[in-house]
C-alpha cells in the first residue's frame, strides 16, 4: 500500500469538507474493496475519509412498503433485518450472499453502489427495484445512477447517504457465483409491480449492471419460470473472461432469471 492520510469524519458535511480539502481523497465506507485495491497498489488515494462512524448514515426504516436503507448499513445488518425481510425478502437474501460473513460485517450498501463493481450484487437489486439513490445533494433514480462499469452518476464531492425503494409485489434474486472470487458470475434480480416486471443483471454485462428487456417482456405476460422457456439472451454485450464466456453467461442470465422468479414466487 502507498502512503495515505486517514481522517475520521464525524458527519456527512464533515466528510464532504475533508474530501474537498484533500488532494486526491476517497471516501472509505466498509473498505472491503478499497483497502484491498490499495493493498495491491491498484488504488492510491492521498487521503481516506472514514464514514464508518457517521451516525446519520446508519439504519433501516420500513414503513409499509416504503423502505429506506442508510448508506452506512452493513450487508450483515440488511441480511438480518426482520422488518425488511417481511417487506422485501429478496434484498435480505441478496445481502446475505455478498462476500463472506466477515466481509458482510464491514461492507456497506453505500460503499457497494458508490464503487459499482460490475460483479457486485446490490446494483442488480436496486436497478430492478427501481430504487432511488439519495445523496447529500439530490436524489437519483437507479436507472440514471448506474452509468457503466465502476461508473456512477455521482459527482465530485457527492456522498451517497441512503437508498430508498417501494417494495414490489414480488421479487427474487438468484446468483451464480464466480467459483474463485465468489462475486456474481451472473446475478439476476426480478421485481414485479402489478403487470410491470423489471429484471436487472449483474456480473454478466461488459459495461456493468443492465436491464434484460427480453426477459422483462416475457415475464410481463406471465410471471412464471415457464414463461422463459425458449427465451434467449444475446451474448453480444456480455463479458468474456477466463471464468466464463459470453455464451455461457448468456445461458446463465436465463437460468438465473428463472430461479429468481421461482424464488420470488416462494
Amino acid at each position: 500500500m502507498y502512503q495515505t492520510n486517514y481522517h475520521r469524519a464525524s458527519s456527512v458535511d464533515d466528510a464532504v469538507k475533508l474530501l474537498k480539502s484533500s488532494d486526491d481523497g476517497k471516501l472509505l465506507a466498509g473498505g472491503m474493496t478499497l483497502i484491498a485495491a490499495m493493498k495491491t497498489r491498484l488504488a492510491a488515494p492521498s487521503d481516506l475519509i472514514d464514514l464508518r462512524h457517521v451516525g446519520e448514515l446508519k439504519g433501516i426504516s420500513v414503513a409499509g412498503k416504503e423502505v429506506t436503507i442508510a448508506a452506512g448499513t452493513t450487508h450483515a445488518e440488511v441480511a438480518a433485518h426482520g422488518e425488511l425481510a417481511r417487506a422485501c425478502h429478496a434484498i435480505c437474501h441478496l445481502a446475505s450472499h455478498i462476500g463472506d460473513p466477515h466481509v458482510r460485517h464491514m461492507g456497506t450498501i453505500g460503499g457497494s453502489i458508490a464503487n459499482n463493481d460490475p460483479a457486485a450484487d446490490y446494483p442488480a437489486g436496486l436497478l430492478a427495484l427501481g430504487a432511488t439513490i439519495v445523496t447529500n445533494s439530490r436524489e437519483i433514480a437507479a436507472d440514471d445512477y448506474f452509468t457503466g462499469m465502476f461508473e456512477t452518476a455521482l459527482e465530485e464531492g457527492e456522498v451517497v447517504t441512503a437508498v430508498k425503494f417501494t417494495a414490489p409485489d414480488q421479487c427474487g434474486y438468484a446468483k451464480f457465483p464466480n467459483p474463485a472470487s465468489r462475486y456474481a458470475l451472473t446475478g439476476v434480480f426480478v421485481a414485479r409491480r402489478g403487470g410491470e416486471v423489471r429484471v436487472a443483471v449483474t456480473g454478466a454485462g461488459d459495461d456493468g449492471v443492465f436491464r434484460a428487456t427480453a426477459i422483462e417482456e416475457a415475464l410481463a405476460g406471465s410471471f412464471d419460470p415457464s414463461a422463459l422457456e425458449g427465451v434467449s439472451v444475446s451474448a453480444d454485450d456480455l463479458m468474456s473472461d477466463i471464468h466464463a464466456s459470453a455464451d455461457y453467461r448468456a445461458n446463465l442470465v436465463v437460468v438465473m432469471a428463472k430461479r429468481a422468479v421461482a424464488a420470488a414466487k416462494g
Binding site: 486517514y6 475520521r8 472509505l28 473498505g31 472491503m32 483497502i35 484491498a36 493493498k39 495491491t40 481516506l48 472514514d50 464508518r52 450483515a76 463472506d100 460473513p101 466477515h102 466481509v103 460485517h105 464491514m106 472470487s181
Partner: peptide, 26 residues
C-alpha cells in the same frame, strides 16, 4: 492479499472481521 483466506480474522466490537482489510486507524 485479496481478503479471501480468513487467516487474519479477529473480532472487532464483537463481530468477526478481516484484520488484513482494515487500517489500524479504522
Amino acid at each position: 492479499d485479496t481478503s479471501q483466506c480468513g487467516a487474519c480474522v479477529v473480532h472487532l466490537d464483537g463481530k468477526a472481521v478481516k484484520s488484513c482489510s482494515m487500517l489500524a486507524a479504522q
